[in-house]
Design a protein around this nucleic acid. Structure first.
Length: 720
DNA sequence: GAGCACTGC
């Protein structure tokens, strides 16, 4: 289709006009049309502030554009007010029928969905959860009838779409932060491409309007994708940031970051510093060096406090970054300075006020997917120019700032990519494919992805789902596949849950799966490593990290609520992780009930004695595509893919068994497999003969074993 | 005998 590009520009005169018109239609009387109650004084004062937002000037044009087009793209910089205002404009312009349809505005993160909903409820002078609400996993603060504007995580809207593929409940979808290109946003965009032609004016469920909001310059790419939908540009409100580059490349970016930070502290005026590094280890190391150097600089300089920031840090330590910089050493002297050394979490998820200086070495850890060996891993990689601009922008939130890039200007222009590859090009597609099949998309090859994943990646996903029995040989969703799509898990874990009742241990498997879907169950602080290992040893089962997790979870659940925190602390167990695992488990139990999957425990006496062999067999039935075997040389090789791997040193399995199944492939200093359980070849061939078929099994040491196992299997079948 | 970017359902 030919692309029809439009651009809505506003001259000064039209701004005047729209401002004048606004005041008349805004408050015809002082009654809130949503509640029928008089507006509060607070509403009127918030309204004044709202009207100073840059986006306010674009109100009439936006409403006009939405009226005349099914899709509108909005490019709005940070501070434009687009996220809070645009859904309200659409609402006020009458694009919803209360009680029948509403607006959904998606956000990539939960905190954003909840806090923005809270803010907008205040602005509209309504109670949160009534006319304005939010829905995130585990929490639905909305009313099925009354809510006309709902903020949701993008993943949540995708879940909703699985039971309502035409999105009948909505007359308008606002996709916010589309430039972040999360997996869910990308799938939603593709889905909208399918749905929009079925939701035109006069169609059964009425017209569906879509507003795509992006904060970066690639809004034109969205315009292109949506067949030339009109693009509206809303300016933001930020301060200028001066950018500096190094004259030659830095050999060691951590050392350079420390040096630059100390230089800023010595030579630059007041203002806090934000330093971007890639991971926990690097960050802790840099923090130590900075503290050391600041100590050595003596008392002539103002005090420097250094805070690390990464997501696995406990919340109370994360909150420290918001503390004010230290006071001057002497009354009237220069005030102290705060340095926050952070992962990418400070690039989008967390905003720290008062940052004036940004140090950007130009790297971050990024997920990459290698379809050839079916492995997702994290790699330290150069960031994109878009990401570098976003980082620099963090220096200009409260006043003009400076950004120090630890690479050359030439490198910025010539070596960095313009934008980061969207997540969909860096992930395995097994879950996405299952979702799309559930959404009724049959032809995946021609599905209109904004950036289509590599064909090999899609093939791998189809192959995996076929091996798991979720898709038949024609690529149609099977009954098992339907059940799997209901579970918010990776397909292999879904399969594990669904088959676990057959092994008489679904209660245990659902606990294990809940633990696997939260990060970091075991804590191991460097200074208390021995004590932590001893604590873990109490729970460990020599044949299985999975069962070790189950033992911890079972012990945790047996502790009364009020003692759990202390118990976790005493046993080096991550309290937050266990609470999350509990929530996940409850959700999974609910879905199991819905799917009529029986909850059976292998602990038949109820005294905590689980049938470990049954559990290991159930794990084998779900995870047969993730196994490795020991070669005569002593090294482990993954079955079929022939990848050389090592058991991770954190594993409780130290007996060097012949066959193991594993949860995770971690490419770090070596190729490690993490979270492993002992299995055996006889189970594998009897449970997954279609995967361990001799014909397609590559020549390797295991092949002879495989043949023997099949012979044993045939022999035992003849006997019975 | 070593490590864990970040989200999300």
């Amino acid at each position: 289709m030919m692309s029809r590009k439009q651009r809505i520009d506003l001259g000064e005169s039209s701004r005047e006009a729209s401002t004048n018109k606004r005041s008349k239609c805004e408050t015809p009387n002082n009654i809130n049309p949503w509640t029928g109650a008089p507006y509060s004084a607070r509403y009127l004062s918030i309204l004044e502030t709202r009207q100073t937002l840059p986006v306010y000037l674009f109100r009439d044009n936006l409403v006009e554009a939405v009226k005349n087009n099914q899709i509108v793209v909005v490019e709005g910089q940070t501070g434009s007010g687009k996220t809070t205002q645009i859904p309200q404009f659409i609402l006020e312009a009458g694009f919803v029928t209360p009680g029948e349809t509403s607006i959904a505005c998606t956000q990539p993160r939960r905190v954003a969905a909840t806090s923005i909903a809270q803010r907008v409820a205040e602005e509209m002078d309504v109670e949160l959860g009534q006319e304005v609400g939010y829905t995130i996993r585990f929490e639905d603060v909305s009313d099925p009838v009354k809510t006309v504007l709902k903020y949701v995580t993008d993943g949540m809207l995708l879940r909703e779409a699985m039971s309502d593929p035409l999105l009948k409940r909505y007359s308008c979808i606002v996709l916010d932060e589309a430039h972040e290109r999360t997996l869910s946003t990308d799938v939603l965009m593709g889905l909208l491409m399918e749905v929009l032609p079925k939701r035109i004016p006069g169609s059964k469920y009425g017209e569906l309007k879509v507003v795509i909001m992006s904060a970066t310059l690639d809004a034109e790419k969205f315009q292109e994708y949506f067949h030339g939908a009109p693009l509206m540009k809303v300016p933001g409100r930020t301060h200028p940031v001066e950018v500096f580059y190094t004259s030659k490349p830095e050999a060691n970016y951590v050392e350079a970051a420390v040096r630059t930070t100390m230089h800023i502290h010595e030579c630059e005026g007041p203002g806090d510093i934000l330093v971007f590094l890639t991971g926990e280890q690097e960050i802790e190391q840099a923090c130590e060096e900075m503290r050391e150097k600041a100590g050595a600089m003596g008392k002539d300089l103002p005090e420097l406090v250094v805070y690390p920031l990464y997501s696995s840090l406990p919340p109370q330590q994360q909150r420290k970054i918001f503390e004010r910089a230290p006071l001057p050493r002497v009354p009237g002297g220069p005030s102290g300075r705060k340095v926050v050394v952070s992962t990418n979490i400070a690039e989008t998820s967390l905003t720290i006020d008062g940052i004036v200086y940004v140090v950007d070495p130009g790297f971050s850890k990024q997920k990459v997917y290698n379809p050839r060996i079916r492995v997702e891993s994290l790699l330290v990689s150069p960031i994109s120019r878009a990401s570098a601009r976003q980082r620099a922008g963090r220096a200009g939130r409260t006043r003009p700032g400076k950004c120090f890039r630890l690479y050359t200007e030439k490198s910025f222009h010539e070596d960095l990519q313009e934008t980061t590859y969207p997540e969909i090009l860096r992930s395995k597609m097994s879950n996405v494919v299952l979702t799309l099949k559930k959404l009724g998309i049959d032809d995946l090859v021609h599905f209109d992805f904004m950036d289509p994943p590599a064909p090999e990646t899609l093939m791998r996903a189809l192959e995996l789902l076929n091996y798991l029995g979720a898709l038949d040989d024609e690529g149609e969703l099977t009954d098992l596949g339907y059940q799997m799509s209901e579970l918010p898990l990776d397909p292999q874990l879904s399969k594990l849950i669904i088959t676990s009742p057959e092994f008489g241990c679904s209660a245990e498997i659902v606990s294990i799966v809940a633990c696997l879907s939260v990060p970091q169950v075991f804590m191991r602080p460097r200074e208390a490593a021995k004590a932590a290992d001893a604590a873990k040893a109490q729970f460990s089962h020599p044949d299985s990290d999975h069962i070790t997790m189950l033992n911890v979870y079972a012990a945790y659940e047996a502790i009364p609520d009020r003692d759990r925190r202390q118990w976790c602390w005493d046993n080096f167990v991550n309290d937050r992780a266990m609470q999350n695992a509990y929530n996940v488990r409850q959700q999974l139990l609910g879905i199991m009930r819905k799917l009529d999957l029986p909850l059976v425990s292998s602990d038949r006496k109820g005294d905590g004695s689980f049938a470990f062999t049954d559990i290991r067999r159930a794990l084998t039935a779900g995870m047969f595509m993730h196994v490795a075997y020991r070669q005569r040389s002593g090294d482990y090789l993954t079955a079929k893919d022939n990848q050389l791997v090592a058991l991770h040193p954190s594993s409780v399995v130290i007996s060097r068994p012949d066959w193991v199944l594993f949860e995770e492939f971690a490419l770090t200093t070596r190729n490690f497999i993490r979270t492993v359980t002992v299995t055996n070849i006889d189970w594998l061939v009897s449970m997954a003969p279609h995967y361990f078929d001799l014909e397609n099994f590559p020549e390797c040491e295991a092949k002879a074993e495989l043949e023997q196992a099949y012979a044993r299997l045939a022999h035992s079948r003849r006997k019975t």
